[in-house]
């Protein structure tokens, strides 16, 4: 039996007269890695924006843990509830060191809460996981594109989130880096965590996803395993068969 982490219920987002999300509903369970795919402009990033509190929907709600409606909460409150997100455009703090990113990700607040040894352990563990141990004192602005992607995964991971959202984590990465990222995402899978990945790279999606949701024009076009997605005529029509 799986518990629902996120229940997206009748979500509509408008930009002017354009509907980026159109009465969208879907459920994401704890323990699964869910891929969200679809053509450019399908509304994937907008969906993550609503879940993380950046965009307010016109209609609908997002229930977290079956109880909390996230659509009324601030970005900070949503993050503190245990939902973290990596942005499509790598978003790191150019002026901070790699280590500082993990510290402020792991220990949230203006003052440190964790004691120094516990924080140290957590930071080392996360740096190890994302493979940035050797870069820990470098400034984020000096990192390569791939390293920035991993740093951002590290900083959202550091808080041990219940819901982890990754928007195009392998965009612009080399094959080898993509391979490493796939292994990383699989390793992050846990029974008490839901992972949502937005991606275009079908081989990558095939490797990581338990289930796939195909979005098209702000609505769900198809939902199921990757095999079934590839076999679905409508999906091939609007997306895969381009």
């Amino acid at each position: 039996m799986s518990l629902t982490a996120l229940l997206v219920d009748g979500l509509t987002v408008r930009f002017g007269s354009f509907r980026a999300l159109d009465d969208l509903s879907l459920a994401i369970d704890y323990g699964e890695v869910r891929a969200i795919i679809g053509p450019n402009g399908a509304g994937k990033t907008t969906l993550l924006d609503v879940i993380s509190g950046i965009t307010r929907p016109k209609q609908g709600r997002v229930l977290f843990d079956g109880a909390t409606d996230l659509t009324g909460l601030s970005e900070a409150a949503i993050a503190r509830a245990g939902l973290r997100r990596k942005f499509q455009k790598p978003s790191v703090f150019e002026g901070l060191s790699v280590r500082q990113h993990i510290v402020i990700g792991a220990d949230v607040g203006f003052r440190a809460r964790l004691d120094a040894p516990a924080l140290e352990d957590r930071v080392s563990e996360v740096l190890e996981t994302v493979g940035l141990v050797d870069q820990s004192s470098r400034l984020a602005g000096e990192l390569s594109h791939g390293q920035k992607q991993w740093l951002e995964i590290g900083m959202v991971l550091a808080s041990d989130p219940k819901v982890l959202m990754l928007d195009e984590p392998v965009a612009g990465l080399t094959d080898e880096e993509t391979e490493r990222t796939a292994a990383l995402v699989r390793a992050l899978k846990r029974p008490d965590r839901a992972i949502v990945v937005v991606e275009h790279d079908m081989d990558f999606v095939e490797r990581i996803a338990d289930r796939v949701t195909v979005l098209h024009e702000g609505r769900t076009l198809f939902e199921g395993s990757m095999d079934k997605v590839r076999a679905d005529a409508a999906v091939v029509e609007v997306y895969l068969g381009r």
Binding site: S52, E75, A76, R80, S91
Partner: peptide, 27 residues
């Protein structure tokens, strides 16, 4: 200080810091 690092983070990408749980308005 730690607070100073958060100031730089706010300068570099405020939305990013907010979505990590920080009340940047207060900062």
């Amino acid at each position: 200080s730690r607070f100073g690092a958060l100031m730089l983070a706010t300068r570099d990408d405020e939305t990013r810091l907010r979505t990590m749980g920080y009340e940047t308005v207060r900062l």
